[in-house]
Design a protein around this nucleic acid. Sequence first.
DNA 1: ACATCTAATGTTATACCATAACAGTCAAGG
DNA 2: CCTTGACTGTTATGGTATAACATTAGATGT
Lengths: 165, 165
Amino acid sequence: MTDHAAEGGFCCADHSGTANAQAILAQAEGQARARGVRLTPVRKRTLEILLQAHGALGAYDVLQRLGAEGYGTQPPVAYRALNFLVEHGLAHRIRRLNAFTACAHPGEEHRAAFLICEGCDSVTEAPARGVSDALALAADAVGFHLERATIEAVGLCAGCKGARA
Amino acid sequence: MTDHAAEGGFCCADHSGTANAQAILAQAEGQARARGVRLTPVRKRTLEILLQAHGALGAYDVLQRLGAEGYGTQPPVAYRALNFLVEHGLAHRIRRLNAFTACAHPGEEHRAAFLICEGCDSVTEAPARGVSDALALAADAVGFHLERATIEAVGLCAGCKGARA
DNA sequence: ACATCTAATGTTATACCATAACAGTCAAGG
DNA sequence: CCTTGACTGTTATGGTATAACATTAGATGT
């Protein structure tokens, strides 16, 4: 289901295994220590895999990569690692894509919206304070106690919008 | 996966097969005629099923009910009807639940947010103009052209919040 | 160092969600 | 009529996710 973006093609966003990924990884390590949870090898590797990926990765994509590196080859291996990352704010689940992506700003405010590009399958994490506040307001208006929210937008990223010359 | 709410128990929201459902159904018929599409028996029945349900229904729940009434018993039967309803604004897909729910306000503005109660599995459609506007703004800030969005909140509805005495 | 306890991993098995592809059917317009 | 296009039905298959249990590795107290 995935991947013209995950192959090797170019892509709109500027993520990839750059210095930024290193910083995020370091941040994740510190955060795990602070919380008293363990960023074990599989979990760390899973996070790295997400960080290196363009767009978002399906659990089975992650699983395949993990398996190829000597980790378990069965679905729970991937799901457990991914769920761990999500629970601790190190990754996000993109429900529309049945996929996961590394959190771009671990440790910070976690009200994020995701901008999913239909052109290149990239997923951008955008700060969503305003959106979240508006949602809280709407929920409050009907007496609903909001715990967490999923905000996902579909459209065209700046790059792909331009490419529609 | 579904249903303590779908059985026969009480529920927070006040939907069900009331007069309101009749009105929505009539509205749907008119809207279909206006658009030049056909609200065939399966489709109409599917909409009725959604309207009668508490919370949201999975495609396979709908399918089972349809099958019991003489319609086809295979997944595409349900998925086609459900997708038709969603495409024409008569139902919504709740991705977090892998489920569908009847639209509470067909024909009107379709920027809606969904409030999913963890207590009773009810799904409430809330107007989301403010949320949607804020999201458009956030998208615009990064040059993203927004086409459509999914906004789903998880928490406790007014009824269940109170019941936590 | 040792016993113990808990958390994490691995594996098997299975359940649930969704769609592709094709065959038959029905309704509307020529 | 009879053709045409939309709709329904069926078969088959693929993708997503979790339950349950066995095993192993880390932390803790003594």
